[in-house]
């Protein structure tokens, strides 16, 4: 599993611009580094990473990144949204990102974990809700996505 990709995906999912993304990326890195000694192994490493990263994405609250040191991050989710890579039809990709954009923050987290092939049990552990409620949320998200596409 590529651990850096987890941070990129969370940043891409919750940030609209490059500055904001850098800020969140930095914050996640620092806090993963600082909280690593408290990782007891009672969950998998990726579950722990998703928890720390999503917690920080939700704590971010406001987009204010004016004084950040200019460090360019490589091409990630942001550019994925607009690029037309070979191999996949561009329209489908754009449709997927447009649909995700319309979900609320909590739904985005659940969808991202689902797309990352996490099972209900792991999603429930990361989000802190019951497995049953994960299923409920997934059903609602499916309906919502269907509506979005139909629109």
């Amino acid at each position: 599993m590529d651990h850096q990709a987890i941070i990129h995906k969370v940043c891409g999912m919750y940030c609209d611009n490059e500055e904001d993304k850098k800020d969140l990326f930095q914050e996640i890195l620092i806090n993963l580094w600082k909280s690593y000694p408290s990782f007891r192994g009672d969950s998998t490493f990726t579950t722990w990473m998703y928890r720390v990263s999503l917690n920080l994405a939700f704590q971010r609250l406001r987009k204010t990144a004016k004084n950040m040191e200019q460090v360019m991050l490589p091409t990630t989710f942001d550019t994925m949204k607009s690029s037309g890579k070979e191999g996949l039809p561009n329209r489908e990709k754009q449709q997927m990102y447009a649909a995700i954009e319309k979900l609320n923050e909590v739904e985005k987290a659940i969808v991202m974990l689902y797309l990352e092939e996490k099972g209900n049990e792991e999603i429930a552990k990361i989000i802190g809700i019951s497995q049953n409620y994960v299923r409920v949320k997934m059903t609602r998200i499916r309906r919502k996505l269907k509506q979005i596409v139909e629109e």
Partner: peptide, 24 residues
């Protein structure tokens, strides 16, 4: 396609960690 070939180098990570956070 996108993430596996786009790793941030160690120096850039260190530089990011030194900068001042603007989070709430």
């Amino acid at each position: 396609e996108h993430f596996q070939n786009n790793q941030i180098e160690q120096e850039k990570i260190q530089s990011l960690m030194k900068s001042k956070s603007q989070m709430t």
